[in-house]
């Protein structure tokens, strides 16, 4: 038995997706932790099996922190309004239906990262069964479904979520998140290579046929996110508008975490407050303006954004993920902030 055998590989993916999805949805349940300890990367950060209840409580608290730092839901990242639900969630529900996946959980959003991984586990399980049955058509259909879902939505939003989550959940949940992204990236790369080989094979068999049924180009980027679309010359645009733009990742190209937001406020000496991130940032901008601290606050925002860009770019290069649309938006946001900062300096 070897991972070079497609059936074995599919079965292994089924188990690993299932485990990671379960961890991300449920947190540190004993059964999942027992499985996780078999995975070297996870075992390296997990507490020992005989850890007391306090340790498990800490782990559960870290899970909560990780999933509230930024929402682990695709629609909140990809959606135009930055809210949960809407067209992004609907598209994901449709994908599940197409793949015959009916999640039983109703306590988390349909487009929660854990459920998305569970969907891939479901597809891989079916693929393994198809290999065992020798049902090559089914294998092809299932791998196409996997590839499609890996490209969109997972590859579009998961890198941003992993970067934004940062260390909020401590080493365990950071590792779980990173391992999930690495699995998606490696699966996606392997899937695209295999699709490319299949396509080439078909082309050589029948050029005409191949031209009619060509697979999506391997380098085609997923749909880009929307642009900032904010006119600073517009008299209705104020600090609150800027805050609203920033906390909508699909527009700003930036998934601003709560921790990063707190750092920005601290740098400018204003309180970060509690509540929804858009309101907190708006409050901070207004307070800073009142205190004459707008320039340091904007500069702190720019610094955070630059760090975000650097991390995302590095991740994209390392894992061959399509992060450029994010980076393009982020550059526009950076330019916007530069304009604001310069304006502040001029006024002073």
């Amino acid at each position: 038995m070897s991972l070079l055998e497609p059936e074995v590989l599919a079965r292994a993916r089924h188990r690993l997706y299932g485990l990671l999805g379960r961890l991300l949805v449920e947190g540190p349940r004993p059964e999942a932790l027992a499985l996780a300890r078999a995975v070297p990367t996870l075992a390296a950060v997990l507490p020992p099996p005989d850890a007391g209840p306090d340790v498990l409580d800490d782990l559960a608290a870290a899970h909560y922190a990780a999933t509230t730092e930024v929402s682990p839901v695709a629609s909140a990242v990809l959606g135009e309004d930055g809210l949960i639900g809407g067209p992004v969630a609907d598209a994901i529900r449709a994908a599940y239906l197409a793949g015959g996946f009916h999640p039983s959980r109703t306590d988390v959003a349909i487009d929660h990262v854990g459920l998305q991984l569970a969907y891939l586990a479901h597809l891989c399980d079916a693929e393994a069964q198809a290999h065992a049955d020798g049902a090559l058509d089914a294998v092809e259909r299932l791998t196409a479904l996997q590839q499609g879902f890996l490209d969109d939505p997972l590859a579009r939003w998961l890198p941003a979520w992993v970067v934004a989550s940062g260390d909020a959940g401590g080493p365990v949940w950071r590792t779980v998140a990173e391992l999930s992204l690495e699995l998606v990236a490696s699966h996606r790369s392997a899937s695209r290579r295999s699709a490319s080989r299949r396509s080439a094979s078909r082309r050589s068999a029948s050029r005409r046929s191949a031209s009619r049924r060509s697979a999506p180009a391997p380098d085609a980027a997923p749909a880009t996110t929307a642009g900032p679309g904010l006119d600073l010359d517009d008299p209705d645009v104020d600090l609150r508008s800027i805050a609203t733009l920033i906390v909508r990742p699909a527009r700003s190209g930036w998934l601003l975490s709560r921790t990063a937001l707190a750092r920005v406020c601290a740098a400018a000496g204003v309180t970060s407050g509690l509540g929804e991130r858009g309101r907190v940032l708006a409050g901070a901008l207004e307070s800073a303006a009142a205190l004459g601290q707008l320039q340091p606050l904007v500069e702190a925002l720019m610094q955070e954004l630059e760090a975000w860009q650097a991390q995302l770019e590095r991740l994209g290069t390392q894992l061959l993920l399509p992060t450029e649309p994010w980076l393009a938006r982020a550059r526009q946001t950076h330019a916007l902030l530069t304009t604001v900062r310069d304006a502040v300096i001029q006024v002073r």
Binding site: A12, L16, V39, T41, L183, L319
Partner: peptide, 19 residues
Amino acid sequence: STTTRIADALASLLGLPPS
């Protein structure tokens, strides 16, 4: 490497030897 890490993770859940 990421490849090794994922390969080991995949192998581990099937009880296969590491990369």
